[in-house]
Computed example of a mutant assay.
Amino acid sequence: MQRYYAGNVPDNVSGINRSSKRYIANNNEKDSEITQHLLALAARWKRFGYRRLHIMLKRENININHKRTYRLYKSAGLILKKRSKKKKYEKRGMPERNFTKANSRWSMDFVSDRTRYGANIRILTLIDEATRECLALEADSSLSGRRVCAVLNNVAIFRGMPKEILTDNGSELTSNYMNAWAYDHKVAHIFTVPGKPTQNGYIESFNGKLRDECLNQHWFKNLTEAKKTIEDWRQSYNKI
Score class of each variant (00 low, 15 high):
residue 130 A to F: 07
residue 34 I to E: 00
residue 187 V to C: 08
residue 56 M to D: 12
residue 33 E to Q: 14
residue 146 R to N: 07
residue 229 T to K: 14
residue 208 G to W: 00
residue 235 Q to Y: 14
residue 233 W to Y: 15
residue 172 E to L: 02
residue 196 K to F: 02
residue 116 R to Y: 01
residue 11 D to K: 09
residue 140 D to Y: 02
residue 225 E to F: 09
residue 55 I to A: 07
residue 152 L to K: 02
residue 92 R to E: 13
residue 165 I to Y: 04
residue 132 R to N: 12
residue 181 W to M: 03
residue 187 V to Q: 06
residue 76 A to F: 07
residue 100 T to E: 09
residue 213 E to V: 10
residue 178 M to I: 09
residue 10 P to G: 10
residue 206 F to K: 07
residue 16 I to C: 07
residue 162 P to I: 12
residue 195 G to F: 06
residue 115 T to V: 03
residue 22 R to D: 00
residue 26 N to F: 08
residue 206 F to G: 01
residue 107 S to E: 14
residue 133 E to W: 07
residue 164 E to Q: 15
residue 67 K to P: 06
residue 152 L to H: 02
residue 61 N to M: 06
residue 120 N to G: 01
residue 215 L to K: 15
residue 213 E to N: 10
residue 36 Q to N: 15
residue 64 I to F: 03
residue 79 I to Q: 11
residue 90 E to W: 06
residue 149 C to H: 00
residue 102 A to M: 12
residue 12 N to G: 02
residue 181 W to K: 01
residue 23 Y to V: 11
residue 109 D to C: 10
residue 135 L to Y: 07
residue 182 A to W: 09
residue 138 E to A: 12
residue 56 M to K: 15
residue 20 S to M: 10
residue 16 I to Q: 05
residue 207 N to L: 07
residue 203 I to A: 08
residue 34 I to H: 05
residue 79 I to L: 14
residue 222 N to C: 00
residue 208 G to T: 09
residue 97 R to C: 08
residue 33 E to A: 15
residue 55 I to T: 09
residue 17 N to M: 08
residue 105 R to P: 00
residue 103 N to A: 10
residue 20 S to R: 12
residue 140 D to T: 05
residue 119 A to I: 01
residue 3 R to D: 06
residue 72 L to R: 03
residue 219 W to Y: 12
residue 125 T to K: 03
residue 232 D to Y: 05
residue 188 A to I: 13
residue 23 Y to M: 05
residue 17 N to G: 06
residue 22 R to W: 01
residue 119 A to W: 00
residue 127 I to C: 04
residue 223 L to A: 08
residue 16 I to E: 09
residue 109 D to W: 13
residue 64 I to M: 06
residue 64 I to K: 02
residue 22 R to Y: 07
residue 215 L to R: 13
residue 7 G to W: 05
residue 77 G to M: 03
residue 78 L to N: 09
residue 228 K to S: 12
residue 182 A to R: 12
residue 34 I to G: 02
residue 81 K to H: 13
residue 133 E to V: 10
residue 135 L to R: 06
residue 8 N to R: 14
residue 89 Y to N: 11
residue 204 E to G: 04
residue 190 I to A: 04
residue 49 G to L: 07
residue 11 D to L: 04
residue 162 P to Y: 08
residue 235 Q to F: 14
residue 177 Y to I: 02
residue 214 C to W: 02
residue 159 R to L: 00
residue 114 R to C: 11
residue 17 N to S: 15
residue 41 L to N: 00
residue 105 R to K: 13
residue 135 L to S: 04
residue 169 N to C: 15
residue 236 S to Q: 11
residue 150 A to R: 12
residue 129 E to H: 01
residue 41 L to Y: 00
residue 7 G to Q: 05
residue 127 I to Y: 02
residue 80 L to C: 11
residue 22 R to A: 11
residue 147 R to M: 12
residue 66 H to C: 08
residue 191 F to G: 01
residue 49 G to K: 08
residue 220 F to N: 03
residue 212 D to V: 10
residue 149 C to S: 14
residue 82 K to D: 09
residue 32 S to G: 11
residue 217 Q to I: 12
residue 43 A to R: 13
residue 191 F to M: 11
residue 80 L to G: 09
residue 73 Y to I: 03
residue 58 K to H: 10
residue 49 G to Y: 05
residue 7 G to R: 09
residue 207 N to T: 04
residue 6 A to G: 01
residue 151 V to C: 10
residue 61 N to R: 14
residue 125 T to I: 02
residue 3 R to G: 00
residue 186 K to D: 10
residue 69 T to V: 15
residue 92 R to A: 14
residue 179 N to H: 13
